[in-house]
Nucleic acid binder design. Structure first.
Length: 419
RNA sequence: GUGGGCGUAGCUCAGUUGGUUAGAGUCCCAGAUUGUGAUUCUGGUUGUCGUGGGUUCGAGUCCCAUCGUCCACCCCA
């Protein structure tokens, strides 16, 4: 045996046992997105690296240390997408989708970040997200959040709690950011190592620190909500009002900030305590400045992304493998020849039939074992004897009844009743 | 990137202070029984003990390195 090749670290295979659950969740997402008037957009897995540098922010961890960036044969710097929003906005601008228009878009697929793998965190992971472009009012913010709440409900997920906050406009946030840096710089001795570093990279994230030793210092820090501009404040108040009206429970978390630079005004997260350290299942917010920043006409926008692996682990596993309706057993070379023909004829005749033909040989006994293991409802027996009489033996597995010598031309009718 | 736990049959795991040809269950295969399947019984296949070094008369067991994995930090969905 030669040396075996393993999957890339942090990139998992999704095995046949797991795919039914994925399909169920994906189906629910597609249906819900559609029910709110969103259309699917499919985007490339790779983009020019510059797209992410300009949107996510060149000094963020994602861009600095986590992107799969490489040069292709034309010496272009490309990156595997670490998230979906940048590509979506790029496509919208490129195809004129955003010019004086409203767009409701959704996407679903693999994202890539070179992080150390952990529970709920992989190097190739999957997100489903939506982007609502061209709408500036808080009504769309509320609708979006109501949509996420509906998704959890449809999937029977109850352990998620909603947190909301407002980051204000870019200008207001910059003022606040300066105040925050001033405050923390004045207490530099009390800052832990991580926060010292964040002071220059992303001071807002200090508010999010998990270190208990930092708690007092953070509580006494200037509050973001007190520095909001009047417009953002009114937007936020209205959003809360609309959420109340829509019956969506939430809590305001003034320390909720985002790691990506492009967010403004509304931000929200759905979090759970059941996933260890990676508790954020869905996060999003408004990014009114991004379209212009990427070279389009100024367009208000809001979106969110759901981490599918994280969501999946909260959905009760119940979707099993789809068992075949029938399993065709053949014994003998002649019967095998007739069996192939019969199987194809049955698939033509019975729409939606899941029919497995025995392959791999063995006598009827071995074939019965396989049929039973497959979970099939009935076994169809075709041996030389049956062939001579132009009939098929039908056995209902795990049931008392059996039907001997069914004529081949009436078999389709019998199978139709099983579907 | 930092820290800790763990790598023994396809899967779940035993393996005593280092001591002969490395084990169980499950799965798979064959046979017997059974109303050709499931149940029950009998038998059988499967491992470079993650990899590479080292210590030793002798290493699954001890040491070093490396890779993988899990969890936490960090980051984020």
């Amino acid at each position: 045996m030669s040396q075996q090749i393993q999957a890339v670290r942090g990139m998992k295979d999704i095995l046949p046992q797991e795919t039914p659950l994925w399909q169920r969740v994906e189906q629910t997402l597609r249906e819900t997105f559609g029910a709110y008037g969103y259309s699917e957009i499919r985007l490339p897995l790779a983009e020019k690296a510059e797209l992410f540098e300009r949107s996510i922010g060149a000094v963020t961890d994602i861009v600095e240390k986590e992107m799969y960036t490489f040069e292709d044969l034309n010496h272009e710097r490309l990156s595997l997408r670490p998230e979906g929003t940048a590509g979506c906005v790029r496509a919208g601008i490129e195809h004129g989708l955003l010019y004086n228009q409203i767009q409701r878009l959704w996407y679903m697929g693999a994202m890539f970040r070179h992080e150390r793998p952990q529970k709920g965190r992989y190097r190739q992971f999957h997100q489903a997200g939506i982007e609502a472009l061209g709408m500036e009012g808080p009504d769309i913010d509320a609708e979006l959040i109501a949509m996420t709440a509906r998704i959890w409900k449809s999937l029977g997920v109850t352990s998620l709690a909603l947190q909301i906050n407002s980051l204000g406009t870019l200008a207001a946030r910059q003022v606040y950011r300066a105040r925050l840096v001033e405050y923390f710089s004045g207490h530099q001795a009390l800052l832990d190592e991580d926060s010292q570093r964040r002071l220059s990279t992303n001071p807002l994230r200090i508010l999010d620190s998990k270190n208990p030793a930092m708690r007092e210092l953070i509580l006494a820090a200037p509050q973001l909500l007190e520095h909001l501009d009047a417009e953002s404040l009114a937007h936020f108040e209205r959003l809360k009002d609309l959420l109340d009206s829509a019956g969506v429970q939430y809590s305001v978390n003034p320390r909720l900030v985002r790691g990506l630079d492009y967010y403004s005004k509304t931000v929200f997260e759905w979090v759970t305590d059941q996933l260890g350290a990676q508790g954020t299942v869905c996060a999003g917010g408004r990014y009114d400045g991004l379209v212009e920043q990427l070279g389009g006409k100024a367009t208000p926008a809001i979106g969110f992304a759901i981490g599918l692996e994280r969501l999946l682990s909260l959905v009760e596993t119940q979707a099993g493998l789809q068992a075949p309706h029938a399993y065709l057993l053949v014994a003998g070379a002649t019967a095998e020849r007739a069996g192939v023909k019969l199987a194809e004829a049955l698939r033509d005749a019975v729409a939606g039939l899941r029919l497995v033909m025995n392959c791999g040989g063995g006598g009827f006994k071995a074939q019965f074992k396989r049929a039973d293991k497959s979970g099939a409802r009935v076994a169809l027996l075709l041996g030389d004897e049956e062939l001579a009489k132009n009939v098929v033996g039908v056995k209902f597995l795990r049931e008392e009844r059996a039907q001997q010598e069914v004529p081949m031309d009436t078999l389709a009718a019998l199978l139709r009743e099983l579907i």
